[in-house]
Computed example of a mutant assay.
Amino acid sequence: MSWSDAQTYCRSKYTDLSTVRSLEDNKDIASLLQSLISLKDLVPAAWIGLHRNFWMWSDASNASYSSWADKQPDMGGSKDCVKMKIDDHTADWSTESCSNAMFFICYSDVRVSALRSVKVRLSGGSVELNDPALQDAILLQLQQKLEAAGIREEVKLRWRKQPDGKVFHRAPPTGWEEEPGIHI
């Protein structure tokens, strides 16, 4: 595909065209490129996300790392996009016309997720806490408080039901050994 078609494809299926921020990234992508393309006996070259818009990555971040081949980047003509090419186990970059059809490498963000369990203790009142509408209202308030505190990442709140199917349990009278709690 052309560079812009490859970018569109990567953005629709993954995150974006590959971004190389370090020598380690360059080696990883080169290794992937070498293994994929050598299976088909083709020239090991592919679009990466760098392009000449002040040499920025497709995701609009600055290019602080580079691995240009000799006499590159070629500033002549309309060679505004960058390919990675494997020669003798080196991964060098060179400019290419963006309209040329070429293999390409996409990347996908991998987000680490964690499950957290929090005990909540509510006091006072005689309202039925196992009413689904009330539980939804409490979750909404908790979500709003997280957002107000600047926590806007992908936080999903949910109630954890106990073996009896209920979320909330009334606390036993004080003096009992077990500490009751509500889990979310």
Rank of each mutant, 00 (worst) to 15 (best):
S2M: 07
S2L: 10
S2A: 08
D5V: 04
D5S: 10
D5L: 12
Q7R: 06
T8R: 12
C10R: 01
R11C: 04
S12C: 13
S12F: 15
Y14N: 11
T15Y: 11
D16M: 02
D16I: 01
L17V: 02
S18C: 03
S18T: 04
V20D: 01
R21W: 13
E24M: 06
E24Q: 09
N26Q: 04
I29E: 02
A30L: 04
S31M: 08
L33R: 01
Q34W: 07
L39Y: 05
L42G: 14
P44F: 02
A45G: 06
A46P: 01
I48C: 06
I48T: 07
G49Q: 05
L50S: 08
M56Q: 06
N62E: 14
A63L: 01
S64I: 09
S64L: 15
S67G: 00
D70Q: 13
D70S: 14
K71I: 11
Q72F: 05
Q72P: 02
Q72C: 07
D74Q: 00
M75D: 12
M75Y: 14
G76A: 12
G77A: 03
G77L: 06
K79P: 00
D80M: 10
C81D: 05
V82R: 00
M84K: 03
K85E: 08
K85R: 11
I86C: 03
I86K: 06
D87G: 00
D88C: 07
H89Y: 04
T90Y: 09
A91D: 00
D92G: 07
T95D: 10
E96R: 12
E96Y: 13
S97R: 14
S97E: 09
S97F: 09
C98Y: 02
C98V: 03
A101F: 08
A101E: 11
F104V: 01
I105T: 01
C106L: 01
C106H: 01
C106E: 02
R111V: 15
V112T: 14
S113L: 13
L115A: 10
L115F: 08
R116L: 15
S117E: 12
V118H: 14
V118R: 15
K119S: 10
R121L: 07
S123V: 05
G124T: 03
G124Q: 05
G124Y: 05
S126V: 06
S126N: 08
S126G: 06
V127K: 10
N130M: 07
D131N: 13
A133F: 10
L134M: 11
Q135K: 15
Q135C: 11
D136P: 00
I138W: 03
I138L: 11
L139D: 00
L139K: 02
L140V: 11
Q141A: 12
L142F: 15
L142C: 06
L142H: 09
Q143L: 04
Q143R: 12
Q144R: 15
E147P: 00
E147K: 15
I151W: 14
R152T: 13
K156G: 02
L157E: 10
R158K: 04
R158V: 09
W159S: 00
R160S: 11
K161V: 12
K161G: 05
Q162N: 13
P163N: 10
K166H: 06
V167N: 07
V167Y: 06
F168M: 03
P172M: 02
P172R: 05
P173R: 15
W176K: 08
E177A: 13
E178C: 12
P180R: 01
P180Y: 05
G181Q: 08
I182G: 15
I182A: 12
H183I: 07
I184Y: 10
I184A: 03
